[in-house]
């Protein structure tokens, strides 16, 4: 089962990311991890939280544009070569990774075109695919 990732549109100006963090704190939603990508005047923030539906609702109420998507989450150990194992498995199957980042608990979040297929392969190869 893929996990839910929430993406938030942020203008490139002071305090916008802090505002997201403040809202999550206020609602007691735990931020497990995030990544940002920036363009010239804006950025997008991808987050994994304890309650994605609730986070989406409260952020929307505060005027943020959000998007919910499925991503794969794989638990790895904190030691050399761990990421490579995951990537090699995907490369063997010619699966391209769109983006990838780490969240708390040494877990890797990654996005691919065919999530179901990639997740099945990783699971069958014995990886710790998080639910």
């Amino acid at each position: 089962m893929p996990i839910k990732q929430l993406t938030v549109f942020l203008e490139n100006k002071t305090g916008r990311l802090a505002e997201v963090a403040r809202i999550l704190k206020r609602e007691s939603i735990n931020l497990q991890g995030f990544s940002t990508t920036e363009a010239r005047d804006y950025g997008i923030l991808r987050i994994v939280v304890s309650d994605a539906e609730k986070a989406r609702e409260v952020l929307k109420k505060s005027g943020f544009t959000t998007h919910m998507a499925d991503v794969i989450c794989v638990g790895v150990e904190d030691k050399p070569g761990e990421l490579l194992q995951v990537l090699d498995t995907l490369t063997e199957q010619k699966i391209n990774v769109d983006y990838i980042y780490v969240i708390a608990g040494t877990r890797v979040v990654l996005s691919v075109f065919d999530i179901e297929n990639a997740e099945r392969i990783l699971f069958e190869k014995g990886f710790n695919v998080c639910q």
């Binding site: 990732q5 993406t7 549109f9 990508t37 363009a39 804006y42 997008i44 991808r46 544009t65 959000t66 998007h67 998507a69 769109d98 996005s111």
Partner: peptide, 14 residues
């Protein structure tokens, strides 16, 4: 303004 109809998690789409 970026509405949900425009927005996705893909930067290149934006």
């Amino acid at each position: 303004e970026v509405s949900e109809d425009i927005f996705s998690e893909k930067m290149n789409a934006l």
